[in-house]
């Protein structure tokens, strides 16, 4: 088990958002969580990645976590190369490890020519490629993607699914949290968030 969340409760005032939620994700699996706006998906995601504390319950993640936020979360004044260095340091990677992984991601997602460009000068699609690549830099064992479809352009979208297959072969589990899911046949399991629980 790469992710196990048990008895998760979370409320905001009198509004109970998550109720005794349970979630397990196996290595190499592809899982989706769908739900309407306001169903609690974002709350669950913030708890899973460690941004928020659950009211009660436990979240166990074994191995490295990669998290790709929905919004492009990058420094406008730093270049693509500097982002890789900064996030490589955050993950505790050595220089050669970081450079190897960076070169692979730049080649796979086809944005190596922008290496020295500042994020402020990148197109939305290229910025999204970097946003995703930073989540993949340290070769995570669990990748959590928040609404990935909304930010991807067609090229990134296609490459993304190719990369997902590769990651799964390497044993990386992928959890997609979104208000809708495409390519349903590729998923091992799709949960629906309803009444604060996954069904």
């Amino acid at each position: 088990m790469v992710l196990r969340a048990e008895h998760i409760y979370k409320s905001f005032g009198k509004n109970q958002v998550l109720r005794d939620l349970f979630l397990e994700v196996d290595p190499g699996s592809l899982c989706g969580i769908v739900g309407e706006n306001g169903s609690g998906k974002s709350t669950l995601l913030k708890i899973l990645v460690g941004e928020w504390k659950p009211g009660s319950g436990t979240v166990q993640i074994s191995g490295r976590l990669g998290y790709c936020p929905q919004r492009v979360t990058l420094y406008p004044q730093l270049s693509v190369n500097e982002h890789f260095s900064y996030f490589g340091a955050a993950y505790g990677m050595t220089g050669p490890e970081q450079r190897n992984s960076q070169a692979h991601l730049l080649e796979y997602f086809n944005f190596g020519k922008y290496l020295g460009e500042k994020v402020a000068h990148l197109s939305g699609g290229t910025a999204q490629k970097l946003n995703l690549s930073l989540a993949l830099l340290h070769k995570p064992k669990l990748l959590i993607l928040d609404e990935p479809y909304s930010g991807f352009d067609w090229d990134t979208y296609q490459r993304f699914w190719g990369y997902v297959s590769k990651l799964r072969e390497e044993g990386c589990a992928i959890l997609v949290v979104s208000h809708f899911i495409t390519e349903k046949e590729l998923f091992d399991r799709i949960y629906e968030m309803k009444n604060g629980q996954l069904q």
Binding site: V49, G50, E51, Y67, P69, T73, Y86, F87, A89, A90, Y91, G92, L134
Partner: peptide
């Protein structure tokens, strides 16, 4: 905040 989530 993302950097903190990544390990800083």
């Amino acid at each position: 905040r993302r950097l903190v989530l990544c390990g800083y």
